[in-house]
Design a protein around this nucleic acid. Structure first.
Lengths: 145, 145
DNA sequence: TTTGTAGATGTATTATTAGTACATCTTTAA
DNA sequence: TTAAAGATGTACTAATAATACATCTACAAA
């Protein structure tokens, strides 16, 4: 059981921006800080912009910054919006072919478990991820000047 | 986010055997009932046997049956044992390369969420999956004589 | 004791899809 | 006008889940 790197990277971008503050950050800087693919990050950033989490500025001296306060960015909601496919087993998807689905108790159990997973994340915001006490270390680890 | 078909099939085999009762069932019968790959099921059955969930009988007139009572087969434990990789994000695995892991609050949140997921499943057993009231329909849907 | 049927086991192949790379376009500050 | 930044779509690669296949072992019935 995994969440996709896409969701992981989305969270990392938001963490970077929250630590960085009001300055604009470029995709290149974030990719370098985490040592991950710039091209993949591009899609992540594009989606975060579309969903209103960040604002992007094109052109020279462009970049991006958070459009919402860290305390208003809920981790559970973000995961739900970012994780493409939350059908944890076949019977949750539209192309289900399992014959016993109508009378199988498993589906509701797994649904309840998934809800418990997401509701746990609903308790937290981006501000909780980056506690103030850790900000200096995060600035250093992410090599933000 | 998914669980693997391997885990799904493990659960389906146990459901079949619980519905079937004391008779021996062959891999072929189970594969036919669910219309899934016999070859894939072989591995699933082998592992369920190794873990003590079922007993298998080789040779002519062979097959398999449950080795534990349905009420003693816990769904959460089974999922933990069957799902190969429960490292939901990179920082949970041994080959983690994310720089901020030491001060990142996300790891404990996702850990807590995963625990909530599994603990939900811990509340249920195979007997809960197959409620008595549904047994006749399950027998029919699985085409068990 | 032979034969056929069942599971045991390991290897190879296929398919899916996440992840990555690349090319080109648009925007904007200097 | 140019360089630097994001926008966008397409194509490729890699990882791994899923499947198929081949051969072995065990057992029961004829």
């Amino acid at each position: 059981m995994h969440i996709t790197r896409y969701t992981d990277y989305s969270l990392r971008v938001l963490i970077y921006l929250a630590v960085q503050g009001d300055e604009l950050a470029t995709i290149q800087e974030i990719a370098d800080s985490y040592d991950i693919s710039k091209n993949h990050l591009m899609k992540v950033v594009h989606q975060l912009n579309k969903k209103g989490y960040i604002e992007t500025v094109r052109g020279k001296k462009g970049g991006m910054r958070l459009q919402m306060a860290p305390a208003d960015i809920n981790v559970g909601i973000l995961v739900r919006e970012t994780e493409q496919d939350l059908n944890i087993v076949e019977c949750f998807s539209s192309k289900n072919a399992c014959r016993i689905t109508p009378v199988c108790g498993l589906k509701s159990m797994l649904g309840e478990a998934l809800t418990a997973f997401l509701q746990t994340l609903d308790k937290y915001t981006l501000a909780d991820v980056i506690q103030d006490q850790h900000r200096p270390q995060l600035l250093r680890l992410l090599q933000i000047a």
